[in-house]
Design a protein around this nucleic acid. Sequence first.
DNA 1: CAGAACGCTGACATCTATGTCAGGGTTCTG
DNA 2: CAGAACCCTGACATAGATGTCAGCGTTCTG
Lengths: 156, 156
Amino acid sequence: MRAKEAAERLGITQRMLRHYEKAGLMDIRRSENGYRIYGEADLRRAGRIRDFIETGFSTREIRTMASCLTDDGAGPCEGGIEQLLQKLGHIDRLRADLDARREAVLDRLAMLRDALSNHLEGSESQQVAPDITVPEGTPHGRRPNPAGVESGAARR
Amino acid sequence: MRAKEAAERLGITQRMLRHYEKAGLMDIRRSENGYRIYGEADLRRAGRIRDFIETGFSTREIRTMASCLTDDGAGPCEGGIEQLLQKLGHIDRLRADLDARREAVLDRLAMLRDALSNHLEGSESQQVAPDITVPEGTPHGRRPNPAGVESGAARR
DNA sequence: CAGAACGCTGACATCTATGTCAGGGTTCTG
DNA sequence: CAGAACCCTGACATAGATGTCAGCGTTCTG
């Protein structure tokens, strides 16, 4: 397929697709007229690159773990794992934090709702947020190092 | 504590600490001589900001969810239910975002680990990342669309 | 006290990610 | 065929994260 479709399927702009290429992260085949021709594998690769970038990696870092971009789980993918684990650490810390906060909010919310209904029992009822449905959102529970400041000195 | 110590404990530079401040993400107390004085709560807040940033968020985006940076899940909350619901919305959206990122990372990680073990099956084994343990942290499982090209059109 | 170590501000510099525009082909369609 | 819709390259532009240096006060220590 050509640029437009590829970009659409990936949810990014053609600009970025070219950017990845220029950054040396991919090498797209060209048709005789010079148009880029993306194959499914290219899409997958670009999709991974996109994800890496949206996860906070720079093309520079990604190039470092180029072997982590191919379909075939071949190459050792040196470097990739540690870097990923590190990111995971950041993400998990934030998640834990958000989970805690989320619960606090839910609690408060429930409390208010109770108070409210008890209060306007039988009154004209002002109908403030009538049917509060707790928006589901992945299970949450344990909450280690609540507001953890650190998690391993000397970084980056 | 003062700048140097704070920065060290957070694993970032004083420069960035000032950057967060200038970005309107925190407001650090000053001693009479003008020196910044960081308290534990400031550290926690800065730590979260740091994590958000390293997870790919910009100060601009972070400012948007400023209420997610405080320790107390409590907070002003004046305005009641609407505000709470709104906050809940932010939190959940944030969580969704983090989940996506987290999962992308986990997927890649699992994939890599598999490839790796399959690869050095019985060989002299170079011991690259010997005992990769997926850091526990909220349950995760399904992994549809392995090398997922897409993940929902119109993103961001 | 002198010098080291540290703090502050502001400015300039680099790198990336992205957007957008221009100038100029190529393809598809009514 | 004419115009729309695409594609390409290259350049200029912005924003944000970070680094680093200068010029200048403050603290701590031998």
